[in-house]
Design a protein around this nucleic acid. Structure first.
Lengths: 335, 335
DNA sequence: CTGAAAGCGCTAACAA
DNA sequence: TTGTTAGCGCTTTCAG
């Protein structure tokens, strides 16, 4: 049987409520002597708070839950680091719950793991929730926010401006004199890919470059997508620049290009999207439109903090975190 | 106010205990009609179980906690995937708690987040706990186990046999005719590095190769460690093979070698340790001694499962998960 | 099969 | 400043 405040109350000779006050630092309600005795006894008995009991009576906790997809996304880590840092700064605890992105049942399971206890807020990392599960989430009155994903409807999110990403990536190449520019590895129809594609087309249009469907090779942001796209473009492609949907995709393109004997950036420029550490360990290092994943995490926690503080318990804002181009070695001026 | 079993009891016209029985599937204690009504009402009211209350009374839960270091380890993901899969299979929930590997206070914070609620067990992923915090962990009567780390003392762990890793890596090179073999990026003194080094030396000795301190460049398993080690070995090194402490270290070595104009594997063979996806996206692909991280996670959950089932609430075993060499393109026969 | 009642460990009024 | 008391929402005897 584990030791409770009653045990330590008995040992010290005070009431349980006094012990409770000391142990939860209700600073103005006890003398330093009692505090001392209580703390000493607690230490000696090896007391550990039963959070379940605390949460039951307080109906609130200092726990933030992050639901992440178990799909391998190499930037999830950075978002989590941001969440962790900001949470820690505010004295919040973080628990992370995994969910396969695909299976609705597993999603629900993960969601319930978070919802069925009094968490302060829920942050969803690149999870595409089914409608049922979104409803479930909304029905709990816990503030929630999607991270690194945007939506057309009005649900709260914090992400990069995907259209801007596509636009900046394309312009980066255009400004270096490129006019035959491909884009590879994005998913055309969901929000993220669609927006990036829109930015790409917008930049092309502004530069009076006709859009060529052959230049667009959809995929799933993976290494393989990059490889396959490059294979499809072919050894003798007339493209002089390619935009990769992710860092992994960029590496796929890079490797396949090198297999073709195409030299990057002399023969072909590559712009990656994401800007994770991966960009620095390739040869040549990858120029990228870098997203500030860490900041997304930080902002997410701040949003929860706000909405709890003002009692609204609902996050409404849709926010973009600025992206910025980082020039490394995979792009060169055409000429 | 959120809806409770009382609310649904009132609505259906039964006692709260009946509702409880239905909702927790005490299958033999209610008719299917009552069950139907209860479930319907629960659905309509949007009932969500308050786990805090459940855990308070049951003093147990189906939650497994994984404590991970926020240090970027690219295999943590694989361990977590293994944990998640096996947990899900057994109907357990998983929560993950972050902890900076270094700061004892943050370690404690993370540990308490896990301990202060009735978790079934705690899995620690590549975390070096301070003595105080280890004590804290032991004082709770929750089964725990370290994953992917070994120890000299008797605490429970599941990891690869690090001596075997060093031994196999070295022999892989020796069997290809190499006799000048370096090792780079390991931390010499902690358990993992020390054991790997021991395996390396053992293999060398068995092949009657004298150990040369110049061949050993310690580090911290990072990309930079690899780069620096290769720089230290130099452009004109007489080494024909190098063992890298991790995949990232191997990539650092590979890149620096390529900067030197050294061709892998023609001029230099590299054996990596870990065998994550990284090995497949380099050119050449990296030969590795691959660890079965996924299996470590699976076994960890099974251990907890066992120790809870047999009521011991204590894991005692120290287990090695076999490693295996995967030949890719970064090694070649010396000739 | 169902209801009544007790209590898990803690906090938060309310008194003293 | 401290003690007393009443629950938080749920499960679980124990009766019926």
């Amino acid at each position: 049987m584990s030791v409770t405040i009653k045990d330590i109350a008995r040992k010290v000779g005070v009431a349980p409520s006094t012990v409770s006050r000391v142990l939860s630092n209700k600073s103005k309600y006890y003398t330093s002597e009692t505090a001392e005795m209580v703390r000493k006894a607690a230490r000696e008995l090896g007391y550990k708070k039963n959070q379940a009991a605390v949460e039951l009576v307080k109906k609130s906790s200092n726990v933030i839950a992050a639901v992440v997809s178990s799909v391998r996304t190499n930037f999830a880590q950075q978002i989590l680091d941001g969440i962790q840092e900001e949470a820690h700064k505010n004295g919040y605890n973080l628990i992370i719950v995994y969910s396969g992105s695909a299976d609705p049942e597993e999603q629900k399971h993960a969601l319930l793991t978070a919802i069925e206890r009094p968490v302060m807020g829920i942050l969803l990392l690149s999870i595409a929730l089914t409608d049922d599960n979104l409803q479930l989430l909304q029905s709990s009155d816990v503030p929630y926010c999607f991270l690194s994903m945007g939506f057309d409807d009005d649900r709260p999110f914090i992400s990069s401006d995907d259209e801007d990403i596509g636009y900046q990536a394309t312009n980066l190449l255009i400004n270096e004199g490129h006019r035959q520019i491909g884009i590879a590895g994005i998913d055309q129809y969901p929000y993220t890919g669609r927006k990036r594609l829109a930015g790409y087309k917008k930049a092309l249009k502004e530069a009076n470059i006709a859009i060529n469907q052959e230049w667009i090779k959809p995929g799933d942001y993976s290494y393989t997508s990059g490889e396959q796209a490059m294979k499809a473009f072919g050894k003798n492609t007339d493209l002089t620049g390619i935009i990769a949907a992710s860092d992994m995709t960029a590496i796929g393109i890079l490797n396949q290009a090198s297999s073709f004997g195409i030299e990057v950036p002399k023969d072909l420029s590559i712009v990656s999207i994401d800007g994770t550490e991966m960009c620095k360990i390739t040869r040549p290092q990858l120029t990228s439109i870098s997203q500030d994943f860490f900041q997304m995490g930080v902002t997410g926690v701040q949003q929860i903090h706000q909405s709890v503080k003002n009692g609204s318990n609902r996050i409404v804002s849709q926010q973009f975190i600025p992206v910025n181009p980082v020039i490394r070695k995979s792009t060169a001026r055409l000429g």
